[in-house]
């Protein structure tokens, strides 16, 4: 058996690269859903962020300004979702669907109107795009057997947003489980009336959660268009927002689990690419479409309660009405 196809450095390396946008979006969804606001508009916010990021990076000539605009636009969409679900007490699912469409259409229309390249943004060159970070001693330690190449290929040589994404996992854990804000955030997703009774504003808490969601989706979008790719192309999120949503459920709304779920889904995709057209022992060739569908299939199996039970935050999806 050729283990390089399964666990080779290039497979693991692309696992990390594929997982990062999932992880950022997944953590984004975590804040919103933990506060009791369901968000199936992660995809739309990522896409809007990706477009805004690439458009700004190319116009202002700086990847960081691109990132700033990605976050700005994504937070704007998040606030629309917040307004619809918190203030207007509308259906959160419907609002999420709407945001996905507005972002998908808007990015292409404005992209075409502004850059006239069929919905693309101009290719990002030089400082307009994030460059990879080479960690200290990556090259000099490269010669050390086993660990050297792992350090050089896997740990070093990624975009700064990759390190940020993995840093956000312990940060999110700490915020949610070790701060007063986090306790209140989780409480408002389970029992908003209790939080309200304690004299804390349910509305303000949820708005803050939704804004954090927007910020992280902006990072995710910027990673796609300003780091991983050199520019925005139509539908570049290609369902990643929904895989992130699936990962969130798979992780049972917990940050560390979220990282493992995203790495798993990323690994499945990387494996699918690596194994394309190569027969496996015993089962023969696995169709690439099966590998693509596997995250969704696994999530459905999980939801069916065959791999533990995924229990969403209790107040999720229900607008809070102060008085009855």
């Amino acid at each position: 058996m050729d283990w390089h196809l399964y666990l080779g450095l290039n497979v693991l390396d692309s696992t990390i690269r594929i997982s990062v946008p999932l992880l950022l979006a997944c953590l984004a969804g975590l804040y919103s859903e933990r506060s009791g606001v369901f968000d199936i508009g992660l995809e739309g916010k990522m896409l809007a962020g990706a477009f805004a990021g690439a458009a700004a990076a190319s116009s202002f000539g700086s990847a960081w300004i691109g990132l700033f605009f990605a976050i700005l636009v994504s937070v704007g969409f998040a606030l629309v979702h917040g307004f619809a679900s918190i203030t207007a007490r509308g259906n959160q699912i419907v609002s999420g669907v709407a945001i996905n469409f507005i972002a998908a259409g808007g990015a292409v229309i404005l992209g075409q109107a502004w850059f006239k390249q069929g919905g693309r943004t101009p290719s990002l060159v030089g400082d307009e795009r994030f460059s990879v970070v080479t960690l200290p001693f990556a090259d000099s330690l490269g010669g050390v057997p086993l660990l050297g190449p792992v350090y050089r290929e896997l740990v070093s040589g990624h975009y700064i947003l990759v390190y940020f994404a993995f840093l956000m996992v312990p940060v999110t854990w700490w915020v949610l489980f070790r701060t007063r804000f986090g306790l209140r955030l989780r409480a408002v997703g389970e029992n908003p009336a209790a939080v309200d009774t304690a004299g804390i504003s349910v509305t303000f808490l949820r708005y803050r959660a939704v804004m954090i969601t927007g910020i992280l989706c902006g990072f995710s979008g910027a990673y796609l268009s300003v780091a991983q790719n050199a520019g925005f192309v139509k539908d570049m999120t290609a369902g990643k927002g929904f895989i992130a949503l699936a990962a969130l459920i798979f992780a049972k709304w917990r940050p560390v689990n979220a990282m493992f779920a995203c790495l798993l889904f990323g690994y499945l995709e990387a494996l699918g690419i690596s194994l394309q057209g190569k027969p496996l022992p015993v089962i023969g060739t696995v169709p690439v479409q099966f590998m693509q569908a596997l995250p969704y299939i696994l999530t459905v199996i999980l939801l069916a309660g065959f791999i533990g039970k995924a229990i969403p935050p209790r107040a999720g999806g229900v607008p809070y009405v102060k008085e009855r």
């Binding site: 629309v80 619809a84 419907v94 609002s95 669907v97 709407a98 945001i99 996905n100 469409f101 507005i102 972002a103 998908a104 259409g105 808007g106 292409v108 229309i109 075409q112 919905g119």
Partner: peptide, 12 residues
Amino acid sequence: DMIVIIQGLVIL
């Protein structure tokens, strides 16, 4: 793609 936006706004 203009339709996609209109569709989204109608849903919203």
